[in-house]
Design a protein around this nucleic acid. Structure first.
Lengths: 113, 113
DNA sequence: TTTATTTGTAACGAATTTGTTACATATCAC
DNA sequence: GTGATATGTAACAAATTCGTTACAAATAAA
């Protein structure tokens, strides 16, 4: 099973969980209460998040308090940053231009036969 | 079918494709030659990348030249950056953090006027 | 001790992802 | 024209994801 950070943040529910746990420590049931899906489903999401280091668990009696530990997001950030030079540049504008002409070609194509 | 940028970059093959197309325009077969999986598989990956705007196609005769158009990565970058303040405040992160808060101050200034 | 609460996990199913092969179409080269 | 090349896509299969319900175990509360 793939358990990397890229995969972890691909799921919108997990991104929401991260958003909650970044600001407040919560036990698992409290997290689950914010969603319409079942508690076991949330439990699995949190398990995955802990497995890739984005959430840490602090056990207190029968409760498990979860907090976000977002340093691992650096892996994604680093991957993206290496390409930042390609954004909002002439190159990027060229790409947008090409995308535009491509659409025009597709439209023209059917008729031109 | 989910077709957002988070999902697009979750797959390692697609990240590799992005890495190749960021630096050079290539037709589809040239991309496929760099991988062990089949050409139709690559074709589908590239289709998905174009559908979420990370790759643009320029048709030239029977060939389709692909280039990366990475502005959409900003969506992921923005999502991550909102949490940067929560990362372990290492010194090398401090610069970026300060830059961000400086921007926020500028924005806040307009409201307080 | 008895009961309620918090949680993990097994077992399962549906949907999605990711690959394949086979075939169709359009274009180039001769 | 004929044949090679570049590509899209349909049809299918295997693996994975993401949810469910049911049950077990540990702890707290009565």
């Amino acid at each position: 099973m793939r358990r990397d950070v890229f995969q972890a943040i691909a799921d919108p529910t997990r991104r929401e969980i991260i958003g909650m746990l970044a600001y407040q420590k919560m036990n698992l049931n409290a997290v689950a209460d914010h969603f319409s899906i079942s508690r076991p489903a949330i439990s699995k999401h949190i398990k995955m998040l802990t497995e890739c280091g984005l959430v840490v668990i602090e056990q207190q009696g029968r409760e498990r308090y979860c907090t976000a530990s977002l340093g691992q997001l650096g892996e994604v950030s680093d991957w993206i940053e290496q390409y930042r030079q390609f954004w909002n540049t002439r190159l990027d504008n060229l790409d947008k231009y090409l995308a535009k002409t491509q659409k025009q070609k597709k439209h023209a194509k059917r008729k031109s036969d």
